[in-house]
Amino acid sequence: MSRPQCPRCLRPTTHCLCALIPSLDSRTRVLLLQHPSEVSHALNTARLAALGLNNAQLVVGEVFDDLATLLNPPGYQARLLFPADDAQPLQVYAPGDLPLLLVVPDGTWRKARKLLHLNPLLAALPRVALADGGISRYRLRKAPGPGALSTVEAIVQALQVMEAPASFELLLKPFEALIEGQIAAMGEEVFQRNHGDGRQE
């Protein structure tokens, strides 16, 4: 029998994260396009980001029929947060800048690339990228390379740059609680063996 689930954060009710999820305003609008395989993932960080940001929307799918509408909210210019040789580095808003619609694909790198392949409008968007060297707090999954961040971490880093000096660190509170809960569930010994840095305490 499945455990009772919080309808908002989709966590088991005994591990509900809603009390830790902030309600943050941002000038930037965030559109999260989530691959269906991520919805039931225990660490669904895109959902945490969407719940914690008032100006955010989470849409699940592989092909988005209403993508043209989603990408063109009045008063915003759309940019895709995804690496590319011609991706522009994110920078702080200048006076008079139109706010960005920051489009964030959510899934493994392979699934995210598939979303771009299946949705040509998405692939055609101008791209922006985070600065190199971001360190993930996601200690449960081997990062595919330096600078690989979870979805919520990437969004926080992007907003911290664009909307400085505003802080979006509170978005990471439920994420960190989620990580701690997963480590506690597996036991410290198993965590150190599989995910630790190899040092014995």
Rank of each mutant, 00 (worst) to 15 (best):
L43F: 14
T45H: 08
R47Q: 14
L48H: 05
L48D: 01
L48A: 07
A49Q: 03
A50T: 06
A50H: 02
A50C: 08
L51D: 02
L51M: 01
N54I: 11
N54W: 04
N54T: 13
N55F: 02
Q57Y: 08
Q57G: 10
L58T: 10
V59G: 10
V60I: 15
V60T: 15
G61D: 12
E62W: 00
E62R: 15
V63R: 13
V63D: 04
F64D: 14
F64P: 12
F64V: 08
D65Y: 11
D66R: 15
L67Y: 08
L67I: 10
A68P: 10
T69Q: 15
L71E: 03
N72V: 04
P73Q: 09
P73H: 14
P73W: 05
P74V: 13
P74D: 14
G75C: 02
R79C: 04
L80V: 04
A84T: 00
A87P: 00
Q91F: 06
Y93C: 08
P95H: 04
D97C: 01
D97H: 00
D97G: 01
L100N: 03
L101I: 07
L101C: 08
L101D: 05
L102D: 07
V103L: 06
P105Q: 14
P105E: 02
D106A: 07
G107N: 05
T108P: 06
K111Q: 15
A112E: 09
A112N: 14
A112H: 12
A112I: 11
A112M: 11
A112W: 11
R113L: 13
K114V: 01
K114P: 01
L116P: 12
L116E: 07
L118S: 12
P120M: 04
L121N: 09
L121P: 14
A123I: 06
A123G: 12
A123C: 12
L125H: 11
L125E: 09
P126V: 09
P126G: 09
R127T: 13
